[in-house]
């Protein structure tokens, strides 16, 4: 066990940017998902095949999840939330491939996703309600609660990043340790646990992101009548 296995190392540099294994893996994931999506989109039929049925099932499941939390903003939130879930599932499961590390075991990657969630909350909130109405919810029910709102925003974003990073990194580390100690067959249950944990962490991250974004969208909902999916 050395540092390169626990923490991603810089493979090369492009100007000021350090290209690590996490970035390379992420590019590969993006390329794979993008290629699969492009190939699938060329073969869409009204009478779906197995792959199209699976893809439609994924989209409909995400739509249902979003509809349960923010029924008026399904089409608005679908690209971001569904992309989070798909990317996290694939990224978390990458650790099962020998020689490949999950990008989500890198705090930089999880922090980037958490920052995106943080920004998305405000982006969608300001977009749906306007800047003043959105910022006003920080002063409700009392301006005294403003510091607590701000602390909550920061801590939940940090928690989002650290939770995913900690779980996936510890999962890989535990698998590595057991592999080193127990040998050949013992890691199989750990691999099964890896699959479950990867799916659960992806679900938790995506669901929390959905709840945060929906909270930002609906922060002033009690003060205004339903407006439907006006941004869709």
């Amino acid at each position: 066990m050395n540092g390169s296995e626990l923490f991603p190392s810089v493979l090369f540099r492009v100007g000021p940017l350090q290209i690590t294994g996490t970035v390379i893996t992420t590019w590969a994931i993006v390329a794979a998902i993008g290629s699969a999506a492009w190939l699938l989109s060329r073969r869409l039929r009204l009478q779906p095949g197995a792959l199209q049925t699976l893809a439609e099932g994924v989209v409909i499941a995400v739509e249902d999840a979003i509809r349960a939390v923010a029924p008026d903003h399904v089409k608005l939130l679908l690209p971001f939330i569904a992309s989070l879930w798909i990317f996290l599932v694939v990224a978390n499961l990458c650790g099962l491939i020998p020689g490949v590390h999950s990008p989500t075991r890198d705090l930089s990657a999880t922090a980037a996703l958490a920052i995106l969630v943080f920004l998305s909350v405000h982006w969608f909130g300001i977009r749906s309600q306007g800047l003043k109405r959105y910022l006003r919810h920080y002063l409700t029910p009392s301006p005294i609660l403003l510091p607590f709102h701000l602390i909550s925003e920061i801590t939940r974003t940090v928690a989002l990043a650290v939770r995913l990073f900690g779980n996936i990194m510890s999962l890989e580390m535990a698998a590595l340790l057991i592999l080193l100690v127990a040998g050949f067959l013992a890691p199989i249950p750990i691999l099964m646990l890896h699959i479950v944990e990867a799916l659960v962490q992806a679900y938790i991250f995506g669901m929390l992101a959905l709840i945060y974004v929906a909270g930002g969208l609906q922060s002033q909902q009690l003060r205004q009548p339903p407006q439907g999916e006006r941004h869709e």
Partner: peptide, 19 residues
């Protein structure tokens, strides 16, 4: 790693656009 941080943001946004 700020480089990884920024590139991950860009990568995910690209993935969102592609999907």
């Amino acid at each position: 790693s700020w480089s990884t941080f920024l590139l991950e943001i860009v990568n995910f946004l690209v993935l969102v656009w592609i999907l």
